Computed example of a mutant assay.
Amino acid sequence: MRYDGAPQRRTHIMAALRRAGFLSVADISAQLGVSTMTIRRDLRRLAEAGEVQLVHGGVSLPPGGVGAPGYASRALSHAGAKQAIGAAAVRLVQPGDTIGIDSGTTAAEVAHALPEDFDGCVITHSVPVLAHMLSRPRSRVIGIGGELLHDNQAMVGFAALDLVRRMRVRLLFLGASAVDERGAYVRSEVELSAKHALMDIADEVVLLADASKLTATAPVQVCGFDRIDTLVVDGPLPAAVATAARRNGTRVLTG
Rank of each mutant, 00 (worst) to 15 (best):
M1S: 07
M1D: 05
Y3P: 11
D4Y: 14
A6G: 00
P7G: 00
R9I: 08
T11K: 11
T11H: 12
H12C: 13
I13P: 02
I13H: 04
M14L: 11
R19V: 08
A20E: 13
F22C: 10
V25A: 07
A26C: 06
I28G: 13
S29G: 05
S29T: 06
S29R: 05
Q31V: 13
G33A: 11
V34L: 14
I39A: 04
L43W: 09
L43V: 10
L46G: 02
A49K: 00
G50H: 03
G50Q: 03
E51R: 15
Q53I: 09
L54D: 02
H56C: 09
G57W: 09
S60Y: 03
L61Q: 02
P69Y: 07
S77F: 15
H78D: 14
I85E: 04
I85N: 07
A88E: 04
R91M: 02
L92W: 08
P95M: 13
G96D: 12
I99W: 02
I99C: 04
I101N: 12
S103M: 12
A108Q: 03
V110F: 04
V110G: 04
V110R: 05
A111E: 08
L114C: 04
L114F: 05
F118G: 14
V122H: 05
I123C: 01
P128N: 00
P128G: 00
H132S: 09
P137D: 00
R138W: 13
R140W: 14
R140G: 14
V141S: 10
I142K: 08
I144D: 15
I144W: 15
E147H: 12
L148S: 00
L148F: 00
D151I: 06
N152M: 15
N152L: 13
Q153G: 09
M155K: 02
M155E: 00
V156P: 05
L161N: 04
D162L: 11
R165N: 13
M167L: 14
L171R: 09
L172Q: 10
A176Q: 04
S177Q: 13
A178S: 00
V179D: 00
E181M: 06
E189N: 13
E191Q: 11
L192S: 03
S193T: 12
K195Q: 07
K195W: 03
H196S: 15
L198N: 14
M199E: 14
D203C: 13
D203I: 13
L208S: 01
A209G: 08
A209E: 04
A211R: 03
L214Y: 00
T217M: 00
A218T: 02
A218L: 02
P219T: 07
F225T: 06
R227C: 08
G235W: 10
L237W: 01
P238D: 02
P238K: 01
A239M: 03
A239C: 05
A240S: 08
A240V: 03
A244K: 01
A245Q: 07
R247T: 14
V252Q: 07
T254K: 10
T254W: 12
G255T: 10
